[in-house]
Design a protein around this nucleic acid. Structure first.
Length: 754
RNA sequence: GGGCGAAUAGCUCAGUUGGUCCAGAGCGCCUGCCUUACAAGCAGGAAGUCGGGGGUUCGAAUCCCUCUUCGCCCACCA
């Protein structure tokens, strides 16, 4: 018999650490690759290696933990694979900022020293977030922790590059890409995010070069500074206003460079004046137009820093001037010369670097691309044919739409922190051959000359999209890969559907011929009371660890899961933690006291419920047993349907409003010996408490485990114990109806008395 | 320019296929209780014409149309 010495109040801090250690020591989180049980696999959305835990992580990981603990208790071989992402551009930026504080740039260090510096930083600060996940109770299989920069993982990345190249799905080409002038790298379409800006539309007059005295032609542009890179003007071939102008020549203002007037169907007649300036090196559309017309150079007039270049096309006084300043000067000059016809306020969306804000500069450069259409096909089919389920469903349309409209993926980054592209250029310009291989070739495979490796690294997401299988040792046929791929549920936020989710599906099908997971469960975003996304930089964040310290991990989890209806955002008030997390703490305390009450009223180990003659059950007994079964059934169904909030709220209601408020009060006379049937009540209390702790465990693992250990009898860990089975036999409609009447009567009497 | 979501009690939000879980929960508020599991609690109570308008139906918070107000995503009209 256990001696009951539970404190009257639940103190999370006193038990959380030791409980977590017991789970680890018992190895309950470690998946057994040799087990006969059906696997259930979740791979974590790997946080950036130098990140620290924020509420978004808290929500996302708590949901994963709820699912994984639930399935583990249901007897599946549950594997939650944790890890981190090297996060190329993000991590490089962090370290560059550190250098900046020392008045240095990465170029002062040089590539090798810089990468070493990043490693130092990662080794010092990295992985903290994984330890923070432990604090909120996450039951990850830490023996399988992966990092996208692990040697084995990096090999998978190179394998993918080489194979896609062999498949003809990777190519290198001169294109206008999104260039971040601060990061000094290209960005994918997804990384260059639109933000609204209030600018001007400038109407600039280009004078005719072939006929003095005439007025010339007016062109509308938002970017006058790019005009020195113009190669022609174009209008729509059916635009009668300009019919006569085709073939004539104009001069670019300020520079005097002569360019022809041409036609193109790409021109929108209703926009501006209907006449478009074509700047192939600084605008992707213009690049296409010039390419289609043929015979044009692609003069570049901006540097990597987005300053005006030191080239003949750029007027001397502007060379080296930063783009915004250059614009101001150009506008002033055009106004002075009378060539600025007019300026209109103009509201439009402009692409910005998703990591460091500045306006992205379209820039002509050699980049590596993945041809996406062939990869998108199976990913699209999987969704349409129901092999990939999306919860909530509406995100499916977003996924589908993006895949339908998919464009090639720029995967090269001009960064130093990342997987360097496994391509080696022949140093002989005459040969120019590029050798793509897993490891450095001794010589150019074409001419046998010396080679140098491509300087660029791969987009971070080019490693992330392999996460569901590279973490299991792919391309090797490991036991883990065979056993645990494909996985089951991906829990993530909808803002990375394109970056990550869709690409994982594509990679899964292309490299393994199978979906990486069957269901994508999208969780909402954590916001403040003004519905602004919670973030450290906005100053409206809540530190999950602070909440754990003040309220306990279970309270944090209870609030997050209970507040998150499927696909809806979670609103928390950074200025009032008590309102947000107090209820969770209170509930934990309630559970604590329910258990305390029951256990202090046990007299040794009670008779197991299945050995009690049901004929001895009183109405309240039949009622609570029925309610318990119904709660088991509804919580199970809710979890199966990813309605985690319904599940936790159902169990909450059962525990507090039924078990505590009614049944416990009803049986007190029997427990105190004032009425008969005390032993039957004890059997029922013990059984119901056990079921309740099991039901609550995925949501509030710490307190339930602690109480479980205090129950009479020998106890294995609750984390490794079975999920309760709903017993139809104990469901009793009559008892529920009848007891409902008793409740109504009692309430009425109390009401009158009050 | 397309698409999506939201609008329900003072606050934050649930409400699954239209009908006795359809007007709910938590917090807050009011009244009374330190009743030996719990004051992080107990008992009782007030509070919403479910954004406006129209329609379908025997019946609508729920379905359709429309309007208003927020929010988000996508988009090569420079």
């Amino acid at each position: 018999m256990t001696t009951i010495t539970l404190a009257p109040k639940y103190d999370p801090l006193a038990i959380e650490g030791s409980i977590y250690r017991r789970w680890l020591d018992a190895g309950v989180f470690t998946a057994d690759v040799t087990s006969d049980s059906e696997p259930y696999v979740i791979v974590i959305p790997p946080p950036n290696v130098t990140d620290i835990l924020h509420m978004g992580h808290g929500l996302n990981n708590t949901l994963q933990d709820v699912l994984i603990r639930f399935e583990r208790m249901r007897g599946r071989e549950a594997l939650w694979l944790p890890g981190t992402d090297h996060a190329g551009i993000a991590t490089q930026n962090v370290v560059e900022r550190l250098l900046y504080a020392e008045n240095k740039t990465r170029h002062d260090l040089g590539r090798e020293a810089f990468v070493e510096r990043v490693w130092t930083h990662v080794n010092a600060k990295g992985g903290t977030i994984l330890r923070q996940l432990e604090a909120i109770g996450c039951s990850c299989d830490w023996s399988r922790t992966r990092f996208t920069f692990d040697e084995e993982y990096s090999r998978a990345v190179r394998t993918v590059f080489v194979r896609l190249h062999q498949d003809g799905l990777i190519y290198r080409g001169l294109r206008v890409i999104h260039w971040c002038p601060r990061c000094h790298t290209s960005l994918s379409d997804e990384e260059a995010e639109f933000r609204d800006r209030q600018d001007h539309l400038y109407y600039i007059r280009y004078q005719f070069a072939d006929a003095e005295g005439q007025d010339g032609v007016v062109v509308a542009t938002t970017r006058p500074e790019t005009m020195f890179g113009d190669v022609c003007l174009v209008f729509h071939p059916e635009d009668d206003r300009f019919k006569e102008l085709e073939g004539r020549t104009v001069t670019i203002p300020m520079s005097g460079v002569r360019i022809p007037i041409k036609t193109s169907r790409a021109v929108e007649r209703d926009f501006g004046t209907g006449m478009l300036k074509v700047t192939p090196a600084h605008d992707a559309n213009d690049f296409d137009i010039a390419d289609e017309l043929g015979g044009f150079d692609q003069p570049s007039i901006l540097t990597e820093d987005a300053n005006m270049s030191d080239v003949p096309r750029v007027p001397e006084q502007l060379r080296g001037v930063e783009r915004a300043a250059a614009r101001t000067q150009i506008v002033a000059a055009l106004e002075a010369s009378g060539q600025m016809e007019k300026m209109e306020p103009y509201h439009h969306a402009v692409r910005h670097c998703y990591r460091c804000h500045p306006i992205v500069e379209p820039r002509l450069s050699d980049q590596w691309f993945v041809r996406m259409k062939p990869l998108a096909k199976p990913a699209l089919a999987a969704y349409r044919e129901g092999r990939l389920r999306v919860v909530p469903e509406r995100w499916g349309a977003v996924y589908e739409n993006w895949l339908e409209q998919i464009r090639d993926w720029n995967i090269s980054r001009q960064l130093w922190w990342g997987h360097q592209i496994p391509a080696w250029h022949c140093t002989d310009d005459g040969c120019g051959h590029i050798t793509v291989a897993m490891d450095a070739p001794r010589a150019c495979e074409s001419c046998g000359g010396p080679v140098r490796q491509d300087e660029d690294v791969l987009d971070t997401w080019f490693s992330s999209w392999l996460w569901p299988f590279a973490t299991f040792g792919w391309p090797n046929e490991t036991r883990d890969l065979t056993r645990f791929y494909p996985g089951h549920t991906l829990v993530t936020a909808p803002d990375i559907i394109f970056f990550w989710v869709a690409r994982m599906v594509m990679a899964g099908y292309h490299f393994l011929g199978e979906r990486p997971f069957e269901t994508v469960f999208f969780n909402g975003i954590v916001r403040d009371t003004e519905h602004r996304k919670m973030s450290k930089s906005a100053g409206n964040g809540i530190d999950p660890l602070e909440v754990v310290a003040q309220f306990g991990a279970d309270a944090l989890r209870f609030t997050l899961v209970g507040g998150a209806a499927v696909g809806t955002d979670v609103i928390l008030d950074p200025n009032d933690l008590e309102t947000s997390f107090g209820p969770g703490r209170n509930f934990a305390n309630k559970v604590w006291n329910i258990a305390r009450f029951i256990m202090t009223n046990l007299d040794g180990e009670p008779t197991p419920l299945d050995q009690v003659d049901p004929a001895q059950f009183e109405l309240a007994d039949r009622w609570i047993l029925s309610r318990c079964q119904r709660t088991i059934a509804s919580a199970t169904e809710s979890l199966d349907r990813f309605r985690t909030n319904d599940a936790v709220n159902d169990v909450y209601h059962f525990t507090w409003s039924e078990l505590a408020d009614w049944y416990l009060e009803q049986v007190k006379p029997r427990l105190y010996g004032v009425a008969d049937g005390g032993d039957v009540a004890r059997s029922i209390l013990c059984s119901v408490l056990e079921s309740t702790l099991r039901l609550l465990h995925p949501f509030t693992p710490y307190i339930t485990e602690e109480l479980w250990q205090h129950l009479p009898g020998e106890r294995v860990l609750l984390a490794g114990s079975p999920w309760p089975q709903s017993d139809e036999q104990l469901c009793d409609d009559d008892a529920e109806t009848e007891f409902g009447r008793v409740k109504a009567l009692v309430t009425a009497i109390r009401s009158i008395r009050a």
